[in-house]
């Protein structure tokens, strides 16, 4: 939409900002289980970063550089979330029962891994996909 030629500084900075925002969103996503954050927040923040890029660089440019199909992203997210539930179901536990344990990983030290993280990843993907779909369908609608 806003696509003026004379905003050089803005364009340079927005790239940096977008990278920072995406990084921060990923941090929020991972810290979700133990600190404020999680799939919803991380997903929405990622969506905002992509949207900001769209605002600055225009629809066609970003569509080339970020060729995601957001509908697929939503489906994958939903399937992922449902899938974690089914695993525990097959194992004889109630649907969507989550498991966690602590592992000793090189470089990271002791890390807690939970199946809830996979579930949250599903949430993340779906939220990004849905938020982008909502806005892009309108923006791309020419008629």
């Amino acid at each position: 939409m806003i696509n003026k030629p004379n905003n050089m500084m803005f364009r340079v900075f927005i790239r940096l900002i977008a990278v920072v925002v995406v990084t921060f969103s990923i941090y929020l996503f991972f810290s979700g289980h133990n600190a404020p954050g999680g799939g919803f927040i991380g997903g929405l923040m990622t969506a905002i970063a992509i949207l900001v890029m769209y605002l600055v660089f225009g629809v066609s440019t970003i569509k080339e550089s970020l060729p995601f199909n957001y509908t697929y992203m939503m489906s994958i997210g939903l399937l992922l979330a449902a899938f974690t539930g089914i695993i525990s179901w097959i194992a004889g536990y109630p649907y969507l029962k989550q498991f966690f344990d602590y592992f000793q990983l090189p470089l990271f030290g002791e890390v807690e891994l939970t199946t809830a993280l996979i579930f949250d990843l599903g949430v993340y993907l779906l939220v990004v996909g849905a938020a982008m779909t909502f806005i892009l369908t309108i923006v791309e609608d020419d008629s």
Binding site: H33, G37, G85, T114, A116, F119, D120
Partner: peptide, 19 residues
């Protein structure tokens, strides 16, 4: 297995709601 109760409720205790 989480310190953030809200998030634990969302993804674990009440996972089906979130689903």
């Amino acid at each position: 297995g989480g310190y953030n109760m809200v998030n634990v409720i969302l993804v674990d205790f009440r996972g089906l709601d979130t689903m």
